[in-house]
Amino acid sequence: MSDMRFTKDHEWIKIEGKIGTVGITQFAQGQLGDIVFVEVPAAGKQVKAGGEAAVVESVKAASEVYSPVSGTVKEGNAGLPDAPETVNSDPEGAGWFFKIELADPKELDQLMDKAAYEKFVAEQNH
């Protein structure tokens, strides 16, 4: 999955042309525990790289999901609010949060590739 990039806040983005699909990583879902509530952005919402784009809540706490890149939300995962546990079971697949049209593909250079992210997580776990 060489087209996937990762943030230090444990989001992933998968690029297909000008559109990126965004979610939280396997590591992030494990840290959060049982996810009971998800809020995804509406189509048309403008977000900045590192800006708040979605919400994920476990039994104990609410967390923000930040957009890895700037752009315009094309679609929120409409099925996710009714099945938030999908984020636990398939965080890097069916548990995606939103699709975004990238304003500046060069922002992707600031993100980690899979190898760099795995190293980053290993250091976090240390």
């Binding site: 525990g33 049982d34 009971v36 476990s58 039994v59 104990k60």
Partner: peptide, 11 residues
């Protein structure tokens, strides 16, 4: 704070 079962299932 929790065991491997997790907060939701423990509850």
């Amino acid at each position: 704070v929790q065991y491997p079962m997790g907060v939701l299932k423990e509850h």
